[in-house]
């Protein structure tokens, strides 16, 4: 039996000021436990879509509900992971993870306890006293994810979180992200440019087209969780990556300007 939607977008339309239509009548729902990847040409509005769901930018038309509320009302239920780690350089790792808790007025003791627990989840339990500049890019991103998890969100929005990392680190973090989901259940919207990453992580892939930004196709990923390194080597996985890549390429070609 399908669960009621956690996130519902109805005819979501967005333009900035008098600019062109950036998102054109997007209809999309996600239920509890969904891991939805958004993939599409640069500038098709993926980041804008996430920011709309987070309530960071207003809609032009249509409606967004998160947990049957407006994004603003549901703010406590959602967390955002930006492309940059966006850590506060003057705080230690532990205190960085505690920032959302602090902003919500949670006391120091409890904050530290929660920070330690989520740092264990991202396997940085021993780096709590370090400052961000002492960490590698991958470690910083893990701290950023730990920070997002500190509030036990129902919905996690990730905007190309691993875009700046090398292939190996990215694959590691993909596996870790799924491992964390075994402990903490959240619904995810995950923006990426990597088809392999999208197929590995998600149960649904939404392919978007540009100008105006719209949903071109949705692909179900049938592999069961937990997924591991073995998944990446399987025939079905490789076939699906190839299929999504083809689809993405056709979308990208269609949205290129025509040259004489």
């Amino acid at each position: 039996m399908p669960t009621p939607p956690l996130v519902e977008l109805r005819d979501v339309t967005k333009r900035f000021g008098a600019g062109p239509v950036v998102l054109d009548r997007i209809n999309l729902t996600a239920g509890e436990g969904d891991f939805v990847s958004l993939i599409g040409p640069s500038g098709c509005g993926k980041s804008t879509l996430l920011r709309l769901i987070a309530g960071l930018t207003p809609l032009t038309d249509g409606g967004v509900t998160v947990c049957h509320q407006t994004p603003d009302q549901a703010a406590a239920e959602l967390a955002f992971v930006f492309q940059e780690p966006t850590l506060l350089p003057w705080l230690t790792v532990t205190h960085n993870v505690g920032v959302p808790l602090q902003l919500r007025g949670i006391g120091r003791e409890q904050r530290l306890a929660i920070s330690r627990r989520v740092l264990e989840l991202v396997r940085l339990g021993d780096r709590g006293a370090a400052y961000p500049r002492q960490l590698s890019g991958g470690q910083k991103m893990r701290v950023s994810i730990a920070r997002a998890l500190s509030l036990s969100p129902k919905l996690l929005l990730l905007d190309e979180p691993f875009g700046a990392l090398d292939e190996m680190t990215r694959e590691h973090l993909n596996e870790e992200l799924l491992a964390i989901r075994e402990h903490q259940a959240w619904t995810a919207f995950f923006v990426t440019h990597s088809v392999a990453e999208a197929v590995f992580l998600s149960n649904r892939i939404v392919v978007m087209a540009a100008k105006p930004g719209r949903i071109h196709a949705e692909i179900a990923v049938p592999f069961a969780y937990p997924r591991t390194e073995a998944t990446r080597l399987s025939r079905e996985y490789l076939d699906l990556v190839a299929e999504v890549s083809r689809l993405l390429r056709s979308v990208e070609e269609a949205s290129q300007p025509v040259h004489a």
Partner: peptide, 10 residues
């Protein structure tokens, strides 16, 4: 980006 983070967490 940090300002945006703070906005995110209201």
């Amino acid at each position: 980006n940090l300002v945006e983070l703070f906005r995110m967490y209201r």
